[in-house]
Simulated assay, not measured.
Amino acid sequence: MSIRTTEPVVQSERQDGVLVITLNRPHVRNAIDRTLAEAVDAALLVLEDDPGLEVGVLTGAGGHFCSGMDLKAFPSEGVPRVADRGLAGLARAHRTKPVIAAVEGAAVAGGFELVLACDLVTASDTSFFALPEPARGLVASEGGAIRLPARIPQHLAMEMLLTGSPLPAADAARHGLVNRLTGPGKALDAALDLARRIRANSPHAVRITRQVVAATRGLADAAAFTIQDPLTAAVFRTDTAAEGARAFCEKRTPDWSP
């Protein structure tokens, strides 16, 4: 019999400008029901709205990232999308700040789709990814069928999507889906290290870079530059750009404070 917890289904912890968001339903491998989805969404909105937060890290409690949508809740709750932001407020969200997935254990179905919605991924070498929706009469409709073929070789993506076959993290790393492969229990540490490296850069430049990548993905060069140039033109005239140049010349750490 599963043991339920009275702790919050999502835990948020601030660490020097980084918001660590932990899915906390370990008795069901952090499966996403309506309550958890809305709690993740609320945490992500805090990340977006708080100028003191620059990077988010999404992880799971109890040795697993996320087993996807809670199928016991599905008949009564449906897919736990939040407003127009999709599954758990992340899969379809228009974000301005980077989010890193720190994966231990299983990241399957909607859990894998949350990973695919993140900007960077760290994973332990004992973790794995899968999209088994067709075995449940469902479709990976929160980004799995759209994003996965763009991230790994087409035929491998199709095998995962059509058969539900799992992809071990080591193989995912070989195909570029994982930024850092770690030992067991070390994915969060690796994610926090990446977050610190991001935070060393201009927050404004990071946000504009994310925006350019999101707005130009899949476009031909000419169309991409047409979209990019209005977004980046003002960056070169900002005080932070001048500070970055001065700091480089003076061989010191830039001061990005307003």
Results as ranks from 00 to 15, higher is better:
R29D: 11
S124Q: 09
P149N: 01
F128D: 01
K72D: 12
D119P: 03
A191T: 01
T96Y: 02
W256I: 11
L71H: 07
E243Q: 14
T238I: 00
A157M: 04
L36E: 09
L23P: 01
L161Y: 02
S257I: 06
D255M: 02
M158W: 13
A61N: 13
G144T: 09
E142Y: 02
T216H: 11
A140M: 15
E133F: 15
A220P: 00
A214Y: 09
P230F: 02
A223C: 07
R207V: 01
R197Y: 00
F225W: 13
G63F: 00
V82H: 11
V103G: 02
V10C: 10
R252F: 05
V212F: 03
T209F: 07
A135T: 10
D171Y: 15
A106P: 00
S124A: 13
P184W: 05
G62C: 06
Q154Y: 12
M1Y: 09
L87D: 07
R217F: 05
M1A: 12
A233Q: 14
T122N: 13
D125E: 14
E48M: 10
M158S: 13
P98V: 06
L44D: 15
V79T: 14
V82F: 11
D193R: 13
A205Q: 03
N179M: 05
L23N: 07
F74L: 15
T163R: 10
F129V: 07
G143R: 15
A135P: 01
A61D: 14
V121A: 06
H155F: 08
N179W: 01
L156T: 13
L19V: 09
P8M: 11
P26C: 01
Q11S: 12
V178C: 08
A73G: 12
A247C: 07
I198K: 03
Q11H: 06
N201L: 13
D50Q: 08
G62F: 00
L188P: 05
T216Q: 03
P168T: 07
L120G: 03
D70Y: 08
A150N: 06
T238P: 00
